[in-house]
Structures are given as structure tokens and as C-alpha cells.
Design a protein around this nucleic acid. Structure first.
Lengths: 140, 140
DNA sequence: CCTCTATTTGCAACTGAGTTGCAAATACAG
DNA sequence: CTGTATTTGCAACTCAGTTGCAAATAGAGG
């Protein structure tokens, strides 16, 4: 039992979620990744030990309801998921997708003011997605 | 032949695209809608005259390449499309999705400054998506 | 108004992400 | 250790979007 395992179990216990092998494995994979992952990414990283596809999706939904994980963005018809721990109250970091190489990166250190909503609307979460050319593709 | 038809044909001709019935019908539907539509929305609005699903998707892709239409957002695993004519150089209006009633509206009159990108990255387009409670659901 | 050809359309079959129902396994409270 | 509510795995399914190909057609050049 590693320290990382302990903190993951603590996180689950705080949200009154049962400690199960799939939940620990999926959450640990997302935390270690450093970038958003899709269901197939998660299954791939866990290899033969990966839980069933259904379990991965249901676990992700459970973690989203508990506000431990967020849906980050859609790419090629797939959802990408990331830990919610770096998000401020109403906003995660922006995501940058390169329209040449199709890779997406997280912009952590970037200022992104909240939009002022018209009367009547209440903000829950603001997401910013940027399309452009990444550093590697720009110099080619 | 209506005036609307004429301006649509002009738009297509300017982009060197052939004037075909499906293209005119799909573009007119999007222009009249005032909100983003999915492929099934478009087919539904055109009724029995609707082109084949394949043609709708291929036409939308053609219009996107010609910068006449944009992909607005994904909802429930479906893409929604809208005319590009209200977008500024690097940004469309933000989209607001109500997490109770699941309806999405366009925020046209809202100021949304462009994020300052880290060195090396070039901006092509910035999209803002906001989740929250809409006016109707907020007063319930 | 015709003819010819590159482009576009419709059909059918497919792909694959995500979902659903249900029986077996299991976390954990007592 | 036992009982039960929760969770998992499997199999079958859904449906948005794609692909290949033959038939239809826009529009250029006579």
C-alpha cells in the first residue's frame, strides 16, 4: 500500500464512496496522467488489469458526481476526463487543441476572466477551448 | 426563387461551391434557425424533403471547410452546427447550457476577451462554454 | 440547347463510443 | 462472521457519424 494509494482512498472515503479496486485504479491513472484521458486511454494504461469498459464509464460518472473528476472536452467523438483538483470555483484551465497534429494540452498558468452573464443566468462552470497551432507544428 | 435563396446561392458561389439542392436547403435551415442544430434537427426541419443523412454530414463538412458554418458544441454525443456569420476573427459567441433543462442558448451580446497564449502557440479560434442555471429554471 | 466530365448524392453496410439489464461478486456495517 | 446494499462484468444493444461505390447532376465548353 503506497502513499498515493492512501490519499486516493482518503479522497474516496471523504465523499462516502466505497473503496473498490476499479475506483482506485482509475482515479490513480487520471491523477498520474497529467493530461485528460479517454476511457480507452485509461483501459490501455491499465492493460490486462483494466476493469470492464462499463465499469470504467460508470466509475467516471460516479467520480464526476462526487466532483472528483471533470469532463474536460470531446475529441473525435470521445470524452476526455481529468481530475478536478486544479480547477477554481467556477472554471477549469483552458484546453488548447492543435488543428495540425490534433494534440490537446492543458493551459494551467493562463489567466481567463469569467464572462459576465446576462441577468437571470447563474454560472456554474465556464470552460474555454482554443484551437490553434502548437509550438511543435508552428516551427515546421 | 426568393431573396433568401439568392443570397445563399451567392454565398456558395463566392466560395466556388456548386449550387445544389441539399446545400441550399441545409444552409437555409441553419440561417433561419437562430440557434445551433444537429444533423437530426436539420433532417427533422426539412421533413420528407431532407437529404440523406450522409449528404447532410458531408455538406456540413464542406460548409465548415469553406468557413460558412462552425461546429458549435457537443451535447449528448451529438454535434451542433451554426452559421459562422456572427463570429469575429478569432472567436464565436459563448454558449450557455442549463444543467437542469439541458437547453443551450447563444450569448450574443456578451464580452469575452481572448486568452493570452503562452509563447509558441498561435490562436485560431477560442470557444467558451458555460454551464449554469437558465432564467426559466432559476425561478422555479 | 446538347455533351461530357468532375463533383455530388443516396444507399447500404459498417464503426465504435457509450448505455442498459441482469446475475454474480464484494465492501463494509453490525 | 453474516447479511445486505452496492458494485462489477458480461452480453447485447443504441445510434451518431463514416466509408465505399454506383447512379445522378451541376455547370463548363462547345
Amino acid at each position: 500500500m503506497t502513499a498515493a494509494h492512501n490519499s486516493i482512498e482518503l479522497l474516496l472515503r471523504q465523499k462516502r464512496l466505497r473503496i473498490t479496486a476499479p475506483r482506485v485504479a482509475i482515479l490513480q491513472t487520471l491523477l498520474e496522467a497529467g493530461c485528460p484521458l479517454s476511457e480507452t486511454d485509461i483501459a490501455g494504461r491499465l492493460g490486462d488489469d483494466a476493469p470492464d469498459k462499463t465499469t470504467i464509464y460508470r466509475t467516471l460518472m460516479t467520480l464526476i458526481e462526487a466532483d472528483i473528476v471533470h469532463k474536460a472536452f470531446v475529441q473525435h467523438r470521445q470524452w476526455y476526463f481529468e481530475p478536478a483538483h486544479h480547477c477554481s470555483a467556477h472554471q477549469c484551465h483552458p484546453h488548447f487543441t492543435c488543428i495540425r497534429c490534433n494534440r490537446t494540452e492543458c493551459l494551467h498558468g493562463v489567466a481567463a476572466p469569467l464572462v459576465t452573464l446576462p441577468n437571470g443566468l447563474t454560472m456554474h462552470r465556464q470552460q474555454i477551448r482554443i484551437e490553434g497551432i502548437c509550438a511543435a507544428c508552428g516551427t515546421k
